[in-house]
């Protein structure tokens, strides 16, 4: 028999021995395990509890809360972008209307640049 085979046989006996531990020892080991698990850092403990079925909806509730926050942020950003777009479109329309009014007027464009004409307009305003 080689080293691995001998070791395998010895380990087989050791496994049987470990399976035959006294009930008192097993109880103490179980208590030690429970104490150790209670010291897990918070998120780990929650995960262990979730895995054990004690807090099954914890993860989904948290994910839902995160989703609502991101949805709110997305709506806010969308609103700001829409408002900016609407405002710039409105300004372009105003400029277009002014340009159209000037171009379609019977007065030549040079008249609007003439200071005397502007003074006459102010004077003739009611």
């Amino acid at each position: 028999m080689n080293e691995r085979e001998i070791a395998g046989k010895i380990v087989g006996y050791l496994d049987r021995s470990a399976a035959e531990l006294k009930a008192g020892t097993l109880y103490k080991l179980q208590r030690a395990r429970v104490t150790a698990l209670a010291r897990l850092p918070e998120p780990e403990t929650a995960r262990e509890l979730a895995a054990a079925g004690a807090g099954g909806s914890f993860g989904s509730r948290r994910a839902f809360a995160d989703l609502r926050i991101w949805l709110g942020i997305l709506l806010l950003v969308g609103g700001v972008v829409s408002y900016q777009y609407w405002q710039s479109a409105q300004q372009a329309r105003d400029i277009e209307e002014t340009d159209a009014a000037i171009l379609s007027s019977e007065l030549p464009i040079e008249a609007y640049l003439d200071r005397g004409f502007q003074a006459w307009l102010k004077r003739s305003e009611p």
Binding site: A19, E20, L21, K22, A23, G24, T25
Partner: peptide, 9 residues
């Protein structure tokens, strides 16, 4: 405490 536990073996 001296009682052996129930075992699969």
């Amino acid at each position: 405490e001296t009682l052996p536990s129930k075992s699969e073996s």
